[in-house]
């Protein structure tokens, strides 16, 4: 192909490149640098060694992040499929309806769940009217998982929908034609062909779930420490940047590993833009 370009066009990428080096790459190095230095600036392994005590927190974060991610997958999969089967106009409306809550400040949405779940909240006062409860719902592990599921569900629905809406209907018909019943068509054709969307959705829900700090503080009542809470405390309350950096570094590496694992299934299209 003849695609002669003046060097001027190629060069316009340089401001972006410069910006990225300064404000994306350099900060990563600073995370590493602070991880391996003490508050006096001298090299030390102290921060890394101190991480051992946070192992339970890491395990808890990953475990709850995974749970929320899987719940999102199971909730989103049927919905995305239903949406992809409706008319083009309905699809547009429903996708807009999925996206709309994301434009609402997430702190307020999370807080709103507090008022729904608390002992004197909406659900318990309704239950009280029929003589039940009150049940403790707030400050439980369930509430934290609910908060994660709620906040990040759209990140699962959208990539799933975008893959499913591009599924070739005749491929599904071919599977039926060859004798596949509904379950077989789902397992043998629809799910395998949705894999890129599933992988993308899993990352997009897992990453923010595992690193959240606000949801666990509000819905877990502070007794429910996640790794995000620990990082936040080091930077905003304890002012131990070095330890905070070390924890962040480990979190980053953990996520990179899980993403590399998932990327084997995902297409290389550079993620899904929401």
């Amino acid at each position: 192909m003849i695609k002669k370009t003046s060097p001027g066009y190629k060069a316009v990428v340089s401001p972006y490149l410069l910006w990225s080096i300064l404000f994306v790459i350099a900060p990563m190095f600073f995370v590493a640098y602070y991880s391996f230095t003490g508050s006096d600036g001298a090299w030390t392994l102290e921060n890394i060694l101190a991480l051992g005590k946070y192992t339970p927190t890491f395990v808890r974060s990953i475990w709850h992040g995974l749970l929320a991610t899987l719940i999102c997958l199971f909730l989103a999969f049927p919905l995305s499929y239903f949406i992809s089967k409706t008319s083009a106009n309905t699809q547009r409306t429903m996708v807009a309806l999925v996206m709309l809550p994301m434009w609402m400040n997430f702190l307020i949405r999370t807080y709103s769940w507090m008022t729904i779940l608390q002992d004197t909240g909406l659900i318990n006062s309704m239950l009280a009217k029929v003589g039940l409860g009150p049940f403790q719902m707030l400050n439980t592990r369930g509430a934290v998982i609910l908060g994660m599921t709620y906040n990040f569900l759209p990140y699962m629905i959208l990539p799933l929908y975008s893959v499913m809406s591009k599924l070739d209907q005749s491929v599904i018909e071919a599977a039926q034609d060859l004798g596949g019943n509904r379950y077989q068509v789902l397992r043998r054709v629809i799910i395998p062909l949705s894999m890129p969307g599933i992988a993308s959705g899993l990352t997009m829900v897992f990453v923010p779930s595992v690193s959240t700090f606000y949801i666990s503080q509000k819905l877990g009542g502070g007794s429910f420490d996640l790794i995000g809470d620990v990082i936040e405390r080091q930077f905003q309350q304890a002012y131990n940047y070095n330890l905070g950096a070390a924890i962040s570094l480990v979190l980053m590496v953990l996520i990179l590993i899980s993403m590399a694992f998932l990327n084997k299934y995902s297409d290389s299209g550079g993620g899904v833009v929401v």
Binding site: F23, V24, I25, A26, P27, M28, F30, V31, Y33, Y34, T203, V207, P208, V210, S211, T212, F213, G228, I231, E232, F235, Y241, G244, A245, S248, L251, M252, I255, M259, G271
Partner: peptide, 17 residues
């Protein structure tokens, strides 16, 4: 990178810079 990194890590890393 900024799209895949957890927001908290992006925030913290810039703060350190």
């Amino acid at each position: 990178i900024p799209m895949m990194n957890p927001e908290i890590v992006t925030g913290v890393s810039m703060m350190l810079l």
